[in-house]
Simulated scan of single mutants.
Amino acid sequence: MSTNSRRATGPAVAVVGATGHTGRFVVAELQRRGIAPIAIGRDAAALDANFHDQGIVCRRASVDDAASLDRALDGAWAVINCAGPFLDTAGAVVSAALRARIHYLDVTAEQPSARAVLDNYDAAARDAGVVVMPAMGFYGGFADLLVTAALGDWDSAEAIEIMIGLDSWHPTRGTRITGERNTARRLVVTGGQLAPLPLPAAEKHWEFGDPLGRQAVVELPFSEIILIARHVKTAELHTYLSRIALSDIRDPATPAPQPADATGRSPQRFVVDAVVKRAGESRRIAARGRDIYAFSAPLVCEVAERLLEGKFSSVGAHAPGAILDARDVLAALAFDHPAFEMMGA
């Protein structure tokens, strides 16, 4: 299979980091939706090994070579960046997307990367007439959509809590590398302002319901804090993660995820609860599904498809809940993916 640059037929979405664990899920999901993927990676042999005889356009490019990125994005209507650590890749890929005047999305869980993209590229994205949306994966955009849906007609909240329940967390190599690279102090919202996570981190128990039950959780914020704080006014915003998942990822002996079905999904189960409170009233929305890495693919591809169709309210650098119909996005995912279920929506 040739890795020379050639234009895809019909609407095409480029995937940077296509040969990685999440990138492969994203390429497959784009194909399932009838959107032509352009698989982009640093290694021509890896591109060939993963996408040989699939009829997928493959292009070699590096974030250290702007010209190669420009060639790789030729013919794309949007780009999904799956190549972490995003602290090292997001700036180069966003810049290339803006030069090409196409939409940009990524799946980072890294707060510093998401914050930098939102802060640094909003004006340029508006000038280019495109959307720049970081952190549109399981950690980040998913919780932002859940919180936005739970808020409903409320324009603010007094407190927001996000509870992420996992029955295990077998990290990919990319997750391991990102964890080593991302050493910044994590941020929460307290007193209405972004502030460093207080240490030691708060702990409590949470009833997730089926299939996880009651679990110990530890405060551990991801990129959803940056996204939600961007467009939701709240005095307190906190994220908690299952202690069992935290123990898994902190153990260097925990193996990478292993496929349990023909799609490549692992057996990992998740439940995410979003609780918003105001004036003595509480609203709760929850979702459950399987394999946080695999689930990031339909999530980011659903949003990418809406961007291609013009189903958003404003160009610029945004959190998904700020410019998309959050309830409609979540409902579409639940309808189209039987492994994903909404509760209390």
Rank of each mutant, 00 (worst) to 15 (best):
I228P: 01
N50S: 08
C58G: 13
S242W: 11
L299G: 08
A332C: 06
R265L: 05
R185C: 14
E180M: 11
D336L: 05
A78F: 13
A92N: 12
L151Q: 05
E219V: 13
I102W: 11
D251C: 11
P198R: 03
P198K: 03
I249F: 09
L118G: 05
L197P: 07
G344Q: 01
R185S: 14
I285F: 14
A245H: 07
R265D: 06
V107Q: 07
R176D: 10
M163S: 11
V131R: 02
L47I: 01
A201Y: 00
P320T: 10
R101G: 15
D155Y: 10
S282N: 15
A326D: 10
A195P: 09
F25K: 01
R181S: 13
G174S: 08
T3Y: 01
I35Y: 00
L47V: 02
I249V: 14
A143T: 09
H103M: 14
H52F: 13
T175W: 10
A149E: 10
V147M: 13
S95F: 10
L220H: 05
K204Y: 08
S156A: 08
L308P: 03
V315P: 05
D88V: 11
A294W: 02
V275T: 13
L194T: 09
R115S: 09
D248V: 12
S95K: 15
F295M: 10
G264S: 04
V131P: 01
D122Q: 01
T148H: 12
R181T: 13
A334H: 02
S296Y: 07
V276K: 14
V13T: 03
A28Y: 01
K311F: 12
I164K: 04
A45V: 02
I35G: 00
I225R: 04
S296Q: 07
I249E: 14
A97P: 13
L199E: 13
G17C: 10
L166R: 10
F208S: 06
H170D: 11
I56K: 00
L299M: 14
T263V: 09
N182W: 07
G174T: 09
L187P: 12
R327P: 08
D273R: 13
R33I: 00
V189E: 09
R115T: 06
L151A: 06
H238I: 15
F222Q: 12
E224S: 08
W154L: 04
V16W: 07
E224V: 07
P196S: 07
P200A: 05
I292E: 05
F270W: 08
A201D: 09
I35A: 00
P255F: 04
S68L: 05
P320R: 15
E224K: 09
N4M: 04
A332H: 06
L118Y: 02
D106E: 13
A67F: 05
V188H: 08
A216L: 12
A287D: 04
A294V: 08
A345E: 02
G152C: 03
D248S: 13
R243T: 14
R265P: 01
F335K: 06
I164W: 03
D48H: 06
A195C: 11
E161M: 03
Y139C: 09
A279L: 15
E158M: 09
H21L: 06
D155W: 11
A61W: 02
H231N: 12
D119H: 06
M342Q: 01
K233G: 15
K277Y: 15
P112N: 09
